[in-house]
Each structure stands twice: as structure tokens, then as C-alpha cells.
């Protein structure tokens, strides 16, 4: 297949599946909280709806930075789709993409001049401490498999079995990372309702739809990387089932936990990372 068609197809699939998964997450959360909840395609419908809504660009915003930062989010997650499903390239690149996602959270918040955005901006800097688990996961995967390239990691798993069984604590740390990126999670301090919508507050209308588009792709890619790196060798149906299971599990946790305050959120993630790193090193040595 033509490479461009391959990329376009993967971007479209990641957007559609990611949106439906985020909608499924809301549905499961609602049902646990004993209310009907929105339809599963709600996130997808909202994304389309926002493209038709009126947007005013605030007078205080830093132009064209305020609009361009939303475009950067889409750029990095399209790059993630290329690195992941299309070329199965380096995991280190994925770390760089995750770091730039933090940057976008930081600057989408501060670019509008709104105090809610500013608070979210500062919280995004604190929550960068939650990248320590990702750093540790990458090192542990490298120590175990001897490579950072996704296609080689899949080959390793075909020979030696799933990494989920041999380095379970690394999988746990990556799962905590997925949890921190999910909506309504205990670690979602940058989008907490105590600061209205955090860094997304002043990006409304079209720009909100654009951010939701990129976030759907981000959710899909996070789950795809988890399944590829820790289970590996799945066919599309396997990926779909895996993603639905992880989304439902994340929804269970999000429905039953409150949002932690910023210091507690960061310290919880760092503590889990510490347990994961020490445990993994011990497991690797024995």
C-alpha cells in the first residue's frame, strides 16, 4: 500500500477508535456511579460539533502562539502514529513525544493569559515528575530486550514470551502513566474541575475540537504502545479487545477515586515509580 495512504488510514483509525474508547470510558464510569451516562459515541460527536461552533480568540492571548500550540499537539501525535503502527520505530521517540505533550499542556494554559490556564500551566510542570516512571520503563525494557526498536521488541516477545509476564512491574508503571493521561483520573491535575478545564479552558470552540481530536489519537497510541510492548504479536482484533479491556479497567479506577491534589498526585506517581524501579531491578537480577 502507498505509504501516505497507510499513514492517513492509521490516523483516521486512531482518531475514530480513540474517540469511541474515550466515550466508552465515560459510559463505564457512569454506569459504576449508577447513572445512565452519555452514549458511547459522545466524544466523537462532540469533536465534530466543536468544529461548527463559534470561536472567539481572546484579546489577551499570545497570537499566533495560542492557535499554533494546538496544531503542535496534532503534529506530535500524528508523528506518534507514524513511529508506531506505520514504521514500528524507536521507543525513545515516543518518550520525546510524551515530553512535548507536557509542553503543549504547559503552554496552551499560559498562552491565553487566563488565571485558570496559568494554574494548569504550573501544575503541568509539577506533573512532569510523573515522567520518571516512563524513563524507568524504557530503561528496563532496554535492559531486558537489548533494543529500543518496536519491531525488535515484538520479535523478542515472539521468541521469549510476553514482557507482561517477565517485567510485570514495568507494565504496572506504564499503566500508571496511561491512568494519568485518562480523563477524570486521580492524577489529572492539569484538567481538574477545580480549575474549570485547566489548560483547555480558554481554547474553546474550534480549538477545543482540535484538542479533542489530538487527545483521541493520543489515547489510542498510548494503549497501542502498551499492547505492542508488553504483549506483542497481536492481530487487529486482539488490539481492539486489549484496548477495550484496558479502557474499562481505567474507567473502574477513575469512577471510584477522587482527583488528588497536585502534591499528592505527583508524590503518588513518584512512589509507584520508585516501587516499580526497585522491584524491577531486583527481578532482573534474580
Amino acid at each position: 500500500m502507498n505509504l501516505m495512504a497507510n499513514i492517513l488510514l492509521n490516523v483516521i483509525i486512531s482518531f475514530l477508535v480513540g474517540s469511541v474508547l474515550l466515550g466508552l470510558q465515560r459510559k463505564v464510569m457512569a454506569r459504576i456511579q449508577m447513572r445512565p451516562g452519555p452514549p458511547i459515541i459522545q466524544h466523537l460527536l462532540h469533536t465534530f460539533k466543536f468544529f461548527l461552533k463559534e470561536s472567539a480568540f481572546p484579546k489577551t492571548a499570545a497570537m499566533p502562539f495560542y492557535i499554533a500550540i494546538t496544531a503542535m499537539l496534532c503534529v506530535i501525535w500524528v508523528a506518534a502514529v507514524i513511529v508506531g503502527p506505520v514504521t514500528e520505530g524507536s521507543l525513545l521517540l515516543f518518550f520525546a513525544i510524551y515530553a512535548i505533550h507536557k509542553i503543549v499542556e504547559h503552554n496552551a494554559g499560559s498562552s491565553s493569559g487566563s488565571p485558570y490556564g496559568k494554574l494548569s500551566c504550573v501544575r503541568a510542570v509539577f506533573s512532569a515528575a510523573a515522567e520518571v516512571p516512563l524513563f524507568a520503563v524504557l530503561i528496563i525494557i532496554y535492559l531486558k530486550t537489548g533494543t529500543m526498536i518496536l519491531s525488535n521488541i515484538v520479535t523478542y516477545q515472539n521468541q521469549h514470551g510476553a514482557l507482561l509476564l517477565s517485567i510485570p512491574l514495568a507494565a504496572l508503571m506504564f499503566f500508571v502513566l496511561i491512568l494519568s493521561k485518562s480523563p477524570y483520573s486521580p492524577f489529572a491535575i492539569t484538567k481538574g474541575k477545580d480549575i474549570v478545564s485547566g489548560y483547555e479552558t480558554e481554547h474553546f470552540g474550534l480549538l477545543r475540537g482540535y484538542l479533542m481530536f489530538s487527545e483521541s489519537i493520543a489515547w489510542y497510541m498510548l494503549l497501542w504502545i502498551f499492547l505492542t510492548v508488553f504483549i506483542g504479536g497481536l492481530n487487529p482484533v486482539g488490539y481492539l479487545i486489549g484496548m477495550v479491556v484496558i479502557t474499562a479497567f481505567v474507567a473502574f479506577i477513575n469512577a471510584l477515586t477522587p482527583i488528588l491534589n497536585p502534591n499528592h498526585s505527583v508524590m503518588t506517581q513518584v512512589t509507584l515509580a520508585f516501587i516499580g524501579i526497585v522491584g524491577s531491578v531486583i527481578l532482573l537480577l534474580y
Binding site: 499570545a62 502562539f65 520525546a96 515530553a99 512535548i100 507536557k102 509542553i103 504547559h106 503552554n107 499560559s110 498562552s111 493569559g113 496559568k118 500551566c121 504550573v122 510542570v125 512532569a128 515522567e131
Partner: peptide, 18 residues
């Protein structure tokens, strides 16, 4: 990062992370 000047704060954060 609590000061105004959002584009300039971006490069402080970006440089550190990269």
C-alpha cells in the same frame, strides 16, 4: 512559570525536557 511571557516560558520547559 507564573510570570507573563508564555512563548519564552515554553523554551525554558522545552529545553529542559528535550
Amino acid at each position: 512559570f507564573r510570570t507573563p511571557g508564555s512563548p519564552f516560558l515554553l523554551i525554558i520547559h522545552l529545553s529542559s525536557l528535550l
